[in-house]
């Protein structure tokens, strides 16, 4: 292995990662993007505070300063903490159940062709049901505590994850499967070594998409029937015409949603580091 080796070593490439070295601009593109983001955020807040709020009526659209004060009050006296925890509980438990069941069912209907062919229209039919409309049923079955909210969350998350997993499992390159079969692998090994890793891209994408749905499910569940939770508090603030309270609740939900999405993205980037970055 002496000759030809040097030539091939220089042939290594990774077009995504290693770019030809050039003179660097003063600010890297990432910094520029971040600066513009901060600028956009600040401009929006200022517009709301100094133009929209005075021009319209703070009674209807509140204002950033009022919302900030309210958030500060909530943070210091901690009245909202139990509600917050309650909502997070139903979000997480429902998300975990929905994702677990979704991945498992996606695998089954993806791998077992007959099962998939038979069940597909039923899944489609169930998925087309507006889940909100099932709320009263969930309440009837499970009462008004955590369980109906968990079910609401899981029912939303499940279909997103299931249909993606199914697509990912069916998308597996048969050549990869044959590599293992030729080496004498059994079905279980094929599942672990080829089907799961190659469907992982799809599964991660669905975990990300499903996350906002989990929050939506939890809040909707609380709005349908509850005496606790962020959804209940927002509904309550609406009832007493407190727009600041509504907005403050929304801000909290938004921050939670962003943080969780970011967390999943990090997880994905780590486990999918074999793929070209920057998509």
């Amino acid at each position: 292995m002496n000759n030809g080796n040097a030539a091939s070593e220089s042939a290594v490439f990774d077009s995504e990662r290693s770019k030809p070295v050039r003179e660097r601009p003063l600010l890297s593109p990432a910094v520029v993007v971040n600066l513009l983001r901060v600028g956009f955020f600040v401009a929006s807040i200022l517009l709301w505070q100094y133009v929209l709020s005075p021009a319209l009526d703070p009674f209807y659209i509140s204002s950033p300063s009022r919302i900030a004060v309210r958030l500060y009050e909530w943070a210091t006296d901690g009245v909202l903490l139990p509600d917050f925890i309650y909502t997070m509980e139903s979000t997480f438990i429902g998300y975990a159940f929905g994702c677990g069941a979704g991945v498992a069912c996606g695998f089954l209907v993806g791998r077992i062709k007959l099962l998939g062919d038979v069940l597909d229209p039923f899944f489609d039919a169930l998925n087309s049901l507006p889940r909100v409309a099932l709320g009263p049923l969930f309440t009837l079955w499970l009462g008004i505590d955590l369980a109906p909210k968990v079910l609401m969350v899981a029912s939303l998350v499940f279909f997103v994850v299931m249909s993606n997993t199914r697509a990912g499992v069916r998308d597996v390159n048969p050549d990869y499967v044959n590599v293992l079969r030729i080496m004498g692998a059994d079905e279980k090994t094929i599942l672990w070594k080829v089907v799961l890793p190659s469907a992982a891209v799809w599964i991660y994408a669905s975990l990300q998409v499903a996350l906002p749905w989990a929050l939506i499910g939890a809040v909707i569940g609380e709005m349908i029937a509850s005496d606790r939770g962020m959804g209940y508090q927002i509904l309550h603030a609406g009832g007493v015409l407190d727009s600041t309270g509504i907005f403050a609740g929304l801000v909290i939900l938004m921050i939670v949603g962003l943080a969780l999405t970011h967390l999943i993205r990090l997880l994905e980037q780590y486990s999918q580091r074999w793929r070209p970055q920057g998509r």
Partner: peptide, 8 residues
């Protein structure tokens, strides 16, 4: 055909 697993 090329059949190295891209994730390995």
């Amino acid at each position: 055909t090329e059949t190295l697993f891209p994730w390995r």
